[in-house]
């Protein structure tokens, strides 16, 4: 039976409407998850009576991609500070962006906000700073002795990450000498806060870690 015998000739192109209306487009957008991925965490003495905390996210940003990089408003960054050695946070610092501004809350007691879920410590002391746009001088927000920053920076991390991957994957047995810094010439989104030691225990040792929490 020939198609023209069926008289369906014009009918068949019908299906092409369906092309436009269905099937292919449902291909889901790429699974996300990078904006909450912590690339690095630093804690060190800045001014002699202060400690600096740094949380970096969104690694391997090229200079071209950096102007468009932004903090995700649904990601809360939480610095945890344990002052009595039980690996349970006693103090927290929260950082959360909104409309181009990074809001820092604390350091404040972790009461009610320990563990894996919680709310923004919005009732505690706030230090705010305009998120520094790429290409601008760093905006620094202060509140008493606290200083804060948020924006793109050079990624301070250095490592031959690729060679490490090859070794773990069983494709190489030794590092190269010299190695290549995978992160050379790339940027990262940084959140930095410097606080007086007196606000986080004063003396002795603290244990600290950073979390990203999403809503």
């Amino acid at each position: 039976m020939k198609k023209n015998k069926l008289g369906l000739l014009t009918a068949f192109l019908l299906a092409f409407g369906v092309i436009f209306m269905a099937a292919d487009h449902i291909e889901a957008p790429a699974v996300q998850g990078t904006s909450a991925d912590i690339t690095d965490f630093y804690a060190f003495e800045g001014d002699s009576d202060k400690i600096v905390f740094v949380a970096n996210t969104q690694g391997l940003l090229s200079p071209a991609a950096s102007p468009d990089a932004s903090f995700d408003e649904n990601v809360l960054t939480e610095f945890n500070i344990d002052t009595d050695g039980d690996a349970v946070e006693d103090l927290i610092i929260h950082a959360i962006p909104r409309d181009g501004v990074m809001y820092f809350f604390g350091p404040t007691a972790a009461t009610g906000n320990t563990g894996l879920s919680g709310t923004v410590a919005a009732n505690s002391d706030v230090t705010i700073v305009d998120i520094t746009p790429y290409g601008s001088t760093a905006n620094i927000g202060t509140n008493g002795d606290i200083s804060v920053f948020a924006g793109p920076r050079d990624d301070p991390f250095f490592m031959d990450f690729a060679r490490y991957g090859e070794i773990i994957g069983g494709m190489a047995t030794a590092f190269n000498d010299p190695g290549a810094d995978t992160f050379a010439g790339t940027n990262v989104m940084s959140i930095v806060i410097e606080v007086p030691k007196s606000m986080i225990g004063g003396t002795g040792n603290i244990n600290t870690w950073v979390e990203t929490k999403t809503r």
Partner: peptide, 26 residues
């Protein structure tokens, strides 16, 4: 143009250090 610039950036880095597979991903 931006995406092409992005591509070229990583391509140049890869030329210099061919083992860096993260650049291939970028």
């Amino acid at each position: 143009a931006k995406q092409k610039e992005e591509y070229t950036f990583w391509e140049k880095k890869l030329e210099k250090t061919p083992g860096q597979y993260p650049y291939l991903l970028k």
